[in-house]
Amino acid sequence: MKDFIQVLTRDLKVALRRWSELCNPLIFFLIVASLFPLAISPEASDLKRVGTGVLWISALLSSLLALDGLFRDDAEDGSMEQLILSPVPLTIVITAKMLAHWLITGLPLVVIAPVVALSYYMPLDTLTTLILALVLATPTLSVLGAIGAALTVGLRRGGPIVGLLVLPLTGPVLIFGTRATDLAVQGESAAGPLYLLGALLALAIALGPLATSAAIRVSLE
């Protein structure tokens, strides 16, 4: 537990000292979300209908953007190798790094998404469901993304294909996330899809670090 917190605080400190990189995914999220009305139609009725989908796709794409830095810097300056060699189980280190990554990129998204949702004319009382769904879904996306980042960290030309590896796996998250927000917009209970999002998160947390650390070991040898 002590090691977990140490890795976590170290990663947070490193991230907070690079403000510009920290903001990139967030600004990307806002840009994508504000381009959709230009591409579809600025009509309130249209925006209301596509709002949830836009939010979820923007969140997905911006979570991809931050992935490259997740392990690459540590791998290049050699600190990742030290972490592999250290007696601390690698899965604990990886889980701490995932949590740090989520706190840096996922959490701001959860905070800012309701503002975007309001601009898409989504009813005020659906926002709690939206926030809940995002809180449950974005960590799963972080875990999936970490697997992709770990698979490509050792490759010179790896960066661009992370999306190809990760996006096919995000289908269920997207389905249940949109379903929850849709149900809330229609004024029905969104408990079912939210439970399923929670189940996916539990599965991701349980198995994701194993896959990620296996991939990291192979990538860096």
């Binding site: 698979l151 490759l155 190809l164 590896l165 192979v218 040898e221």
Partner: peptide, 19 residues
Amino acid sequence: ALRGVTEDRDKADRLSAVL
């Protein structure tokens, strides 16, 4: 695609296995 961008075959084998 992952196999395509990984030059070392042994590495490609094991990385793609995880995927």
